[in-house]
Design a protein around this nucleic acid. Sequence first.
DNA 1: CGGGAAACGATACGGTCGTATCGCAACCGA
DNA 2: TCGGTTGCGATACGACCGTATCGTTTCCCG
Lengths: 211, 211
Amino acid sequence: MPKQVDYEGRRRQIAEAVCLLADEHGPEGVTMRDVAARAQVSLGAVQRCFSSKEEMLLFAIDHVGERITERARARLAGSPAQSAATALGHAATEIALLREENRAEARIWLAFVAKAAVNEQLAAPLRTSYASLHDLLARLITEAAGSAPDDEVAAPPDPQREARTLLALADGLTSHVLMGHLPTQEAEDVLHAHLVGLWERLGTTGPRHAV
Amino acid sequence: MPKQVDYEGRRRQIAEAVCLLADEHGPEGVTMRDVAARAQVSLGAVQRCFSSKEEMLLFAIDHVGERITERARARLAGSPAQSAATALGHAATEIALLREENRAEARIWLAFVAKAAVNEQLAAPLRTSYASLHDLLARLITEAAGSAPDDEVAAPPDPQREARTLLALADGLTSHVLMGHLPTQEAEDVLHAHLVGLWERLGTTGPRHAV
DNA sequence: CGGGAAACGATACGGTCGTATCGCAACCGA
DNA sequence: TCGGTTGCGATACGACCGTATCGTTTCCCG
């Protein structure tokens, strides 16, 4: 029997290298040779892990999507005691990737979104990630609305639509920050103000403590 | 004296070709040779108009930005008799590029936004376009708020922030439609619902007729 | 322990890219 | 009319890309 290697681990290692390079030069600027060098493996090793460059990029985008969704979920699990409204705020700011330390992930994400608009192959995994985020937000919104005083839930807004709004707003803000149209602080203000409005519409008083 | 040609006209002609190709394959998939073929000029002619590919792309993105901004302004000028709230709705839907016939422009725009997140050179003209759109929206919002009954303008929301929110939401919706996460109809619903909320916050009753 | 299958990594290959070059044609002014 | 400046476009060039190939090394298992 031949030698055995941890392919899955190496694929992840290579995906990390793809992300680093895509962050620096955009996904089109990612070359197999650069990926191999960054991941500290040979070009041949990269070729053995992925049968083509396209497949490598597909794996990388899935990798990033899972990381973002997972982090949003983890942030939620990390503060379970607070209200649904607070959780919603945390999830939204997490998704918007506005913090400086998430700038790289945001650039990668935006780059792949743009590519997906032209390449149906890339669009599929992105849609999966977005559907997952949408579900998460919609669930939180429904939950937050449910915790409102009974006399206020006369006309609750459509949670699905509110989730779509929030998700689109977060994405738009992210791209505006990335291209330097908005400073991070203003984007956070916009998102916070929108959440305040959403809480009012839901009939809740918002989180018990300031966000 | 030597022969003379209409350089400015040719630059625009080439910019159109760049847009067509960027719509099909993304801006990275645009090659000088393809541009020349699509614009029905020789490769040498393209080289004489732009000293480098980068300069050509810069010119093209300016071209698109001007077109979008100009169309939003034209749409406004075309219906001057209606209320500021109606105008705001028109401007927002125009900017969101949700209609099928603007799909190509939306793809081009998204592609350049993604590139701008990595290339500062490209970001500058994009910021100019966004600043222009922001001013337009902020002005309309201020105007719409001014037309509210006097007893309702006690706490008018910040028009600057509302404009930023609207612009980011429009961009996010555009990208979500492009990648197929949202059908056009749902994106329009989201935008419309947000506008209704904005009108309420402004104290106006919204446009006199349905949008 | 030894044979063979798989991993390995250097190298080769065909193609395409952006850019530079160059001989020829076209045009304006003196 | 004619000379020289410029437009013109085909071609050349060097670099780099993704992928294929191949001799060598490594390691599992009978």
